[in-house]
């Protein structure tokens, strides 16, 4: 009696977790605006740091403000449905609620400014983003991935460099 109940509870909780996982997974790919990195980076040759402007100055690369989108899209491609969405956010003075794509493992410290200022190309850690119509994280940030690069470049592999 009790055993079957326990089983049922276990199955139910796994189902719930699977559901949550699925929700999380879909949230990664859908964005409030179908923004294409390919169009901006490959077709129009816009430097990554134009939009991700704090990459050289801060730990985070930063997501552009609505104001920054509107610098160009006040005049460019204003009739596209996705651009109209930006204009609507701007009109309502509401921020765009982007979904997080790239995850950094827990208990790690990754300052963008250190890597970018040392000349590490964005595509080293974000491969394929220049060709992506919808941003996804292709490279998992495993410890091996980071260590390989740190060793090759001869920079610190001290634990406390990343795990502070």
């Amino acid at each position: 009696m009790l055993r079957s109940r326990l089983k049922a509870a276990a199955v139910a909780s796994f189902l719930l977790l699977a559901l949550l996982g699925a929700v999380a997974a879909t949230a990664q790919t859908s964005q409030p605006i179908a923004y294409s990195h390919r169009v901006h980076v490959t077709n129009f040759k816009i430097d990554c740091r134009f939009c991700h402007s704090s990459a050289t100055k801060s730990t985070s690369a930063g997501i552009p403000s609505v104001e920054k989108c509107m610098i160009c899209h006040r005049a460019i491609a204003v009739d596209r449905p996705e651009v109209k969405k930006i204009a609507q956010y701007w009109k309502e003075k509401k921020p765009i609620p982007w979904n997080r794509v790239t995850e950094l493992p827990d208990h790690t410290y990754f300052p963008h400014k250190r890597m970018v200022n040392a000349g590490v190309a964005c595509l080293t850690c974000h491969p394929g983003i220049d060709q992506a119509d919808a941003a996804i994280q292709k490279q998992e940030f495993t410890m091996g991935f980071c260590m390989d690069c740190h060793r090759k470049r001869g920079v610190s592999i001290d634990c406390w460099t990343c795990h502070v």
Binding site: L20, A24, A27, G62, I63, P64, S65, V66, E67, Y89, W90, K93, K94, P95, I96, P97, W98, N99, R100, E103
Partner: peptide, 13 residues
């Protein structure tokens, strides 16, 4: 799972 899933930038920084 409580890492913030949204990234909300400024409208005008």
């Amino acid at each position: 799972d409580s890492i913030p899933r949204k990234i909300i930038p400024f409208v005008i920084p």
